[in-house]
Simulated assay, not measured.
Amino acid sequence: MFYSLLRRLLFQLEPETAHHITLGAIEKAFRLGLLKQPVIDCPQRRVMGITFPNPIGLAAGLDKNGEYLDALAALGFGFVEVGTVTPRPQPGNPAPRLFRIPQAQAIINRLGFNNQGIDRLLENINRSSYTGVLGINIGKNFDTPIEHAVEDYRICLSKAYQYASYITINISSPNTKNLRELQATDALDTLLFTLKSEQLSLNQTHGKYTPLVVKIAPDLERSQIASIAQLLLKHKIDGIIATNTTLSRQGIEHLAISQETGGLSGAPLAEKATAVVAQLRHFLQGTIPIIGVGGIMSAQDAKKKMDAGASLIQIYSGLIYQGPSLITRIAQTICKDQYPSEQA
């Protein structure tokens, strides 16, 4: 009820302004001791060799620079993913670049990896008290030619490696020109070979194995998903996130705002993202864990992702529309069911 009233006020503001105000308010409430962490009655889950307190995570994009880690963790998440972060700071695309669609419980964004760079992210992580499961989502700078993108990912991987519980390779944002070309077979083969080699080298250097995860788009054909699955197996990649935002406007074509460019998230993405999870389960046969994300606006949406084959789930748009109580509601639904978990 409280969040419903607060949301009405926030939705009167420009979306990006409301985003910063909300995060600032959560941070202040946490610092003042006003943020009471909910009790999430959920058995631990072991995925990618990592023990997760619960299977509900925060998707990348909400806290790009890792400025609010402690406060966001206090909402009850079992893990938090920060970023997307790039080697150098960049402002992202011109505003306005974030659009709400309340009647469809959806968001369109064309932010374009706006972030303060990998070095600032790591400074923020060092200043935080967060000791939970941390994903760091990495990408390339907008002005790095696509043929040199591998080096941007390698730089971020090398710097973030010792700080992360796992690292996500974001090759699927629709808001950086040509980025999705990295999902093509030859380009992805080269990228994964380089990053896997770097991972194994860093493992030797730091005495710590940090899993690599690939985040893919929901707009892929079945044959493309099959090819990606084969490359994940070939290079022994540790996990996959399905999915990023979509370029499709199916279900909202009648709304004028659907003409805005960018990636669509929220309720209209749910079915498409869940279908990708199911296809990955078919092609991977349980050999690589799947993190399901996209259109989880209710506990039932989360259950559908888990039933389709996800080992973990992440939320973002659902948090904006439903508020933090969504985390507890999801836990009450999916934690009572027995889903496969790795043996410790």
Rank of each mutant, 00 (worst) to 15 (best):
I118W: 02
I118T: 05
I118G: 05
I118C: 02
D119N: 09
R120L: 12
L121S: 04
E123K: 08
I125H: 10
N126A: 14
R127G: 10
R127Q: 14
S129Q: 14
S129Y: 03
Y130D: 12
V133C: 13
V133F: 15
I136H: 09
I138M: 05
G139N: 10
K140M: 05
N141K: 10
I146A: 04
I146R: 01
A149W: 02
V150N: 02
V150K: 06
D152E: 01
L157W: 10
L157M: 10
L157F: 06
Y161A: 15
A164T: 07
S165G: 12
I167R: 02
I167V: 13
I167M: 07
T168C: 08
N170E: 08
I171W: 00
P174C: 10
T176P: 08
K177Y: 13
K177F: 14
L179F: 04
E181I: 03
E181Q: 10
L182A: 04
Q183N: 06
T185W: 00
A187V: 06
L188W: 12
D189H: 08
T190E: 07
F193C: 12
F193G: 03
F193L: 15
T194M: 00
T194S: 10
T194Y: 00
T194D: 01
T194I: 01
S197K: 15
E198H: 05
S201G: 05
S201M: 14
N203H: 13
N203L: 11
Q204D: 14
Q204K: 15
G207C: 13
K208N: 14
T210G: 12
P211C: 11
L212H: 08
K215L: 01
I216Y: 03
I216P: 03
A217E: 07
P218K: 06
P218D: 02
P218H: 04
P218V: 07
D219S: 08
R222G: 03
I228S: 02
A229R: 01
A229W: 00
Q230V: 06
Q230Y: 06
L231D: 01
L233W: 05
K234T: 12
K236T: 11
I237S: 08
